[in-house]
Design a protein around this nucleic acid. Structure first.
Lengths: 171, 171
DNA sequence: GTAGCGCCTGATACACTGTAACATCGTTAC
DNA sequence: GTAACGATGTTACAGTGTATCAGGCGCTAC
């Protein structure tokens, strides 16, 4: 299918200076820990490992990629286990699923859900960035209201070229 | 060719048993015929059958569903052929792929691409409706500009309850 | 204690989604 | 004719995701 397996293409976009998640993984884990504590949820070993894998890479990872990364010689983790952990993590807003890529990325914001989330997927380097826009949210709601549609969840994914790649191409 | 105003675009629920898409399907085929003629593209038997299957149903269909439907006792159509036909049809704006469902629906508008397309997926009846909103498009572009991101394609899919189902539930 | 209960995980199997690679066939261009 | 090209057929396979059953582990109730 699509090759996001070996992470070479351009790991510079996500984790760059203008994105504020340089030390993401640690921050991410701490946030998850706190959140699970607050909600009385179990932040188990497996869930921890899956989140760490996703957060450490920063690039979108497929479930099988994750399974491979968190498997050790003596301890093989089956994809099905990864899926369950990912379900848990997405339900609690710690990772997001990128529908157009069948892949998962850590949530870099501390928003709940439904905050006008926009994913920007770079065709060149494969990075995925995330931003929010209440204005977009409002505009979508307005449009949906005209159609008599009650929205429960929205996904907005944009493909193109990220700022870093555009700058690199221009120079 | 859509004579309805965009404001009421989603007023009816696509894909209900009670309403037939024979008319839509015919219109769709005619439009496809015309479009391929204009662009000098081959509207082959297979492509015709695939489009007819998608248009006739109105509900989102998976590639394997389509393969099954257009297969006849003597003539089995492999999914891979369906995928190729679907590639052709999506490239030419005749069908859309719903990323969150891995399924395909006919394009009910006569827009090109990139017209602020919004898909509304009903959790209850499974129908998918389509509308456009230049305002959303504009707002997205504005937001992306702030991030220095150059958009090439966007997908916006909303899940919730369609007007028809809401009305039915209320009665 | 231990028996039950709920939740998480392991494991297997399987269905669905999508692509690669190569053969064939019909049409068009020369 | 034949070469080139595009569409389709065919097989094989990789990747995605779910169903199901079994075992483990902590917790509470008795």
């Amino acid at each position: 299918m699509d090759e996001r397996g070996s992470a070479e293409a351009g790991s510079e976009c996500r984790g760059h200076d203008h994105h504020h998640h340089g030390h993401d993984a640690e921050e991410m884990m701490a946030r998850a820990e706190r959140l699970c504590g607050e909600r009385g949820l179990q932040f188990t070993h497996l869930r921890r490992e899956v989140l760490r894998a996703v957060a450490a890479d920063g690039r979108p990872l497929g479930a099988y990629d994750i399974a491979e990364r968190i498997s050790a010689p003596g301890r093989r983790v089956a994809p099905v286990s990864v899926y369950r952990a990912l379900d848990f993590l997405t339900e609690n807003g710690l990772v997001h699923r990128i529908a157009t890529r069948n892949a998962f990325v850590p949530c870099v914001h501390d928003h709940g859900d439904g905050a006008g989330l926009v994913f920007m997927i770079c065709r060149n380097c494969g990075s995925i960035d995330e931003t929010t826009s209440p204005e977009i949210e409002r505009q979508i709601d307005r449009t949906l209201a005209l159609s008599g549609f009650k929205a429960r969840s929205r996904i907005l994914e944009v493909e193109g070229e990220c700022g870093a790649c555009t700058a690199r191409a221009a120079s």
